[in-house]
């Protein structure tokens, strides 16, 4: 196809794709701009001057509702816990599924079911189970488990994709050279799949950091950031809401960029090693 001239279809689809990207990013851009609204500005255009008033208001003043700092800390910690658990558990399960074992079929379907069951059911179910067993739900216990039911299937599917493309002759070569199975894993398998593990970690962190429905009934006494933001939407009618939106989105984007750079660097380093 490469030698052909661009057809009319190409230009039509390019325009369509550009519109789609505009559709994805346009609204986010508007709240980004509006978060720099002047002190007397409102929730919509026109801009009434421009300032960082609402960011200062968000970060340094006591809000009428909620506790932004505490919610952010909890979401950050929960995201990191979920990320670590997702990477470790998906990697182990991915390794397990490379071989046949009794119950692998049911476990696979259970993992897929975890992806399909509506979030609100997980939320309700975990909330009820904790109540029935007389436990207090908290963001680090019940919400942590609820988030894992969402991140682990993604992690496992990524591991499947990785191991489907993994060439087992590397491991055989290592074993022929006398490496133990641990050495083979640590010095051969792990370096090859490391970029994908960073990807799994990225999914684990961001999906947890932004999760709302699964946290709703499982967070317990203290809110996570998405719950806090949702609470604000019903009470706050100033651009401080947009400032919060901008801050959390910039934070998410920064995490994504760091992860992508890490993946690129790891890949390049590997390529250099292989070439050298």
């Amino acid at each position: 196809m490469n030698s052909e001239k661009r057809s009319l279809g190409f230009y039509v689809l390019t325009a369509f794709f550009a519109l789609f990207v505009l559709f994805l990013y346009g609204p986010l851009t508007t709240i980004f701009i509006l978060s720099f609204q002047g002190p007397n500005g409102g929730l919509t255009f026109p801009m009434n001057g421009s300032s960082v008033h609402w960011f200062k208001n968000l970060l340094f003043e006591q809000q009428a509702v909620g506790d932004f700092g505490g919610a952010f800390t909890r979401s950050l910690l929960l995201g990191l816990m979920t990320m670590l658990a997702t990477v470790v558990v998906s990697l182990l399960a991915g390794l397990a599924f490379r071989r046949r074992f009794l119950g692998s079929g049911p476990l696979f379907y259970l993992t897929i079911a975890s992806l399909i069951v509506p979030s609100i059911l997980i939320s309700l179910g975990i909330g009820l189970a904790f109540q029935v067993f007389g436990l207090n739900p908290a963001w680090y216990s019940s919400a942590f488990g609820a988030h894992l039911t969402w991140t682990l299937p993604f992690g496992l599917l990524i591991m499947f994709a990785v191991f489907n493309r993994f060439n087992p002759s590397y491991e055989e070569a290592a074993r022929d050279l006398g490496a133990t199975s641990w050495q083979t894993f640590a010095h051969v398998v792990l370096p090859i799949i490391l970029p994908s593990l960073v990807g799994v970690g990225l999914f684990g962190f961001t999906l947890s950091y932004d999760e709302f429905a699964r946290t709703l009934m499982t967070a317990g006494t203290f809110n996570t950031l998405p719950l806090e933001i949702y609470g604000m939407t019903t009470n706050v009618t100033t651009p401080v809401l947009y400032a919060l939106g901008t801050v959390t989105t910039v934070f998410s984007m920064a995490i994504i960029v760091v992860a992508l750079v890490a993946i690129a660097v790891l890949r390049k380093r590997r390529a250099r090693k292989v070439a050298g």
Partner: peptide
């Protein structure tokens, strides 16, 4: 090995997917 490697996933899904749905059913 595969059983040990699959254990964490199985336990997490049992505790936070199967048990909660069983609780809803109950």
């Amino acid at each position: 090995a595969p059983y040990l490697q699959a254990t964490p996933l199985t336990l997490i899904l049992a505790a936070f997917l199967v048990l909660p749905i069983a609780t809803i059913a109950m």
